[in-house]
């Protein structure tokens, strides 16, 4: 998972709103121009590496993304409706299709790296505070809390599987499809119970009536990054799209 990783890099010290700005501006939704997308991808990758984040941190995701991208390139190659240049005679693979699939994949990877930069360098409570700028506070709280419970659910699923298997539940064989029912039901029951308890516990500690929460401060570094990202974005747009 993309969980916060302690560090002392530039992005670790930035205001979370700056990082959100960075995240949104690298989404590169304007165009599928390959040069445009590549330059934003390289820029994001540079920021990723410059903040001493490693590929190890996004291993789980990149596997999925790589498979997905390969499929994307193949499918687009075959089925892109505006393709004209056939690469192999007799086969409906077009150059435009492959290029389009490649562009979409680039965009996906840019989002992955950009999201990783945001999530890996921002503490949960800072995410919450800036999410609170865009979303209602309760919703922002629920979202960030959900992240914290993922490892617990993983742990619980393991325990439930072990206990059901020790009662003779078989993972293989003809009844394989029904395997997950006895696992999911207790998991959900427990999750609901936990949600109820969490709500009570949070309420007990005075959630909902906060007057002053966290102190946000944009420093010089933040403005430099915001300005830098903005200039870079406009430059790419101007060079490759207009």
């Amino acid at each position: 998972m993309l969980r916060y990783k302690d560090g002392r890099s530039l992005f670790h010290k930035l205001d979370s709103r700056t990082k959100f700005f960075f995240f949104f501006s690298t989404l590169s939704l304007f165009s599928t121009n390959i040069l445009y997308l590549s330059s934003i991808f390289v820029f994001t990758l540079f920021v990723f590496l410059a903040n001493r984040l490693s590929f190890q941190d996004i291993k789980g995701f990149s596997k999925f993304f790589i498979i997905f991208s390969i499929l994307l390139v193949i499918f687009q190659g075959f089925f892109y409706p505006f393709g004209k240049t056939h690469l192999l005679s007799g086969f409906p693979i077009t150059f435009e299709g492959i290029a389009f699939g490649f562009a979409i994949s680039l965009r996906l990877f840019t989002i992955l790296f950009s999201l990783a930069i945001l999530m890996l360098t921002t503490k949960q409570k800072h995410l919450l505070e800036s999410l609170g700028n865009f979303l209602p506070k309760d919703l922002a709280f629920s979202l960030t809390t959900a992240f914290r419970f993922i490892p617990i659910f993983e742990e619980e699923t393991k325990t439930i599987i072990i206990s059901q298997e020790s009662r003779g539940l078989k993972k293989r064989g003809p009844r394989r499809l029904t395997f997950y029912f006895p696992v999911i039901v207790p998991l959900f029951t427990k999750a609901l119970e936990r949600a109820k308890n969490l709500a009570m516990s949070v309420e007990t500690r005075g959630f909902g009536k906060a007057k002053t929460r966290y102190n946000l401060k944009m420093k010089t570094n933040d403005w430099i990054i915001v300005l830098g990202t903005l200039i870079f974005g406009v430059l790419c747009f101007w060079l490759f799209i207009i």
Binding site: R3, Y4, K123, Q124, K125, T145, R148, F149, I152, E193, R194, N197, L198, M200, S201, V202
Partner: peptide, 11 residues
Amino acid sequence: FQDPDSQIFSI
């Protein structure tokens, strides 16, 4: 409350 796992939510 009884179950600490359902009270703690911060990292």
